[in-house]
Design a protein around this nucleic acid. Structure first.
Lengths: 208, 208
DNA sequence: AGCATGATACATACCGTTCTGTTTCCTATA
DNA sequence: TATAGGAAACAGAACGGTATGTATCATGCT
C-alpha cells in the first residue's frame, strides 16, 4: 500500500514534525481522503478510517474532535491540493489565455483517466448530505469560487468585454465533464467539453 | 402535505387497484422518493420511510424485498416521471429543433426553481455509493442515455452532420447546470447554460 | 375464508463516541 | 550521561443509538 510507505517517509522529512509527531494526523487525513472519496462519506465508518490509517481511535478524536471535523479537514486538504495541481497544470499550458481556456479540458482529461478518480469530492459531498444543509453547500461553494476565479482571470485576458459570461459558461462545462466522467468512466468525455469550449470562444470572437 | 393528499386521491382512481389494494406500495414509493432525494439515500433509514408513508415495515419488505429494492424502484419511477415531464416540456417549446435545443435550458430553469429541487437523483446516487459499484452507475447511465437520445433526436433534425458532437456537448451543459444549480441554489445559472448552447449551435452553423 | 395491511417486538450488526490503560519517545534536568 | 516527566499515540472494551431485516399477531376489506 502506498499509504504505509507514505507514513514511513514522513519520519525522514525535514519538516517541523521531524520525528513522527503529528504523523498520525497526516495518516488519518490521507486514509480518510481516499475512503471518503471512493466509498462516500456516510458509507465510511471511523473504524475503517483508523484501520486504514493505522492509528488509534483516540488519535482521531484528539486531532479532529468528531467525524464531521475530520470530514471538513479532508475536504479542505483535498480541495487545496487539487486546486494547486489544476492551476499549475493550466499555467504550464502553452499558448495564449484563449488557448489555455480550451486546453484546460485536456488537464481535466488527465484527472479523469487517473485510477483513483472518484469525481469531485465537493459535488459528491453535497449530493449525499441533506439538500437543505447550508454548511456543506457553503464548503463546496468556496471551492468552486476559487476555481471560478482562476477561469475568470484567464477569461479577462482573453476577452475582457465578455469575461463574466465566458467564465460561467466554461465553468458549467467543467462541472458537466466531471459528473459525466464519473458516471461513464470515460475520460474521452473531456474531448467533447474541449470542443464545446472552443466553439463558445470562437463565437465570442465573432461578437467582438 | 401533498403526500397524504396524493395517497387519498389514490383510492378514487380508476386504475387496477380500485379499492386501496396496492396503495401502500404507492405511498412508500412517494415517501421514499422525497426522503431519498432530499436527505440522501444512505442518510435515510427505512423507519423514516415507513413513518412518512404511514405503512408497516412488513409492507415495505413484502413489496420491495429490501431497502436496495426500494431504492431501485424509486429511481426507476423518479427517472421515468422526470423524463416524461422533460420531454413533454421540450416538445411543447416553440420554434424549430435548433430553438428547442437552446430553450430546453429554460425548461431546466423551471425545474431548478422548484421548491423541492434536490438535483438529479441519479447523479446524487452515484456520488454517495462506492465509485466502483457498477450497478448504480449502470442505472444512472440508463437514465442519461434516454435523455441523450432525446437530445440526439433534436440534434439530428437541427444539424444532421454534426449531431453526435452537438448532442454530447449540450448534454455536458445540462449536467453542469444541474450540479451548479444544486450547489448555488440559483436557477439563473440556467441562463448561462442557455447562452452557451446558443453559442455552440451558432458555431456549428458557421462550420456547415 | 383469504389476503393485504397494520402494529409491535425482536435479532443482529454497525454507527459515532468515550473510556481505561499501556507503550513509545522526546526533552529537561541532575 | 542517566534518569524522570510528560505528551502523543496505540489498543481495545464499552455505551447508547440506530441500521436493516424478521417474526408474531391483530384487523379490515372482498
Amino acid at each position: 500500500m502506498s499509504l504505509s510507505q507514505n507514513a514511513l517517509a514522513e519520519n525522514s522529512g525535514v519538516t517541523s514534525q521531524a520525528s513522527g509527531r503529528g504523523a498520525a494526523r497526516e495518516r488519518l487525513l490521507l486514509a480518510a481522503s481516499d475512503l471518503f472519496c471512493k466509498q462516500g462519506i456516510n458509507a465510511t465508518g471511523v473504524d475503517a478510517v483508523i484501520a486504514a490509517a493505522g492509528t488509534a481511535k483516540t488519535t482521531l478524536y484528539k486531532a479532529f474532535g468528531s467525524k464531521e471535523g475530520l470530514v471538513e479537514a479532508v475536504l479542505e486538504r483535498e480541495g487545496e491540493s487539487w486546486r494547486k495541481w489544476f492551476v499549475e497544470e493550466v499555467d504550464a499550458l502553452p499558448g495564449n489565455p484563449s488557448d489555455k481556456l480550451v486546453h484546460l479540458f485536456d488537464v481535466l482529461k488527465k484527472w479523469f483517466a487517473e485510477e483513483h478518480f472518484y469525481g469531485c469530492p465537493f459535488i459528491n459531498a453535497v449530493a449525499e448530505h441533506d439538500k437543505d444543509d447550508d454548511r456543506m453547500r457553503a464548503i463546496a461553494l468556496r471551492h468552486k469560487t476559487v476555481v471560478l476565479d482562476k477561469i475568470r482571470e484567464l477569461a479577462r485576458e482573453a476577452r475582457p468585454e465578455d469575461a463574466e459570461g465566458l467564465t460561467h459558461e466554461l465553468a458549467l462545462l467543467i462541472d458537466g465533464a466531471i459528473v459525466a466522467a464519473l458516471i461513464t468512466r470515460d475520460p474521452n468525455i473531456a474531448d467533447h467539453a474541449r470542443n464545446a469550449a472552443a466553439r463558445i470562444l470562437n463565437n465570442y470572437d465573432l461578437d467582438g
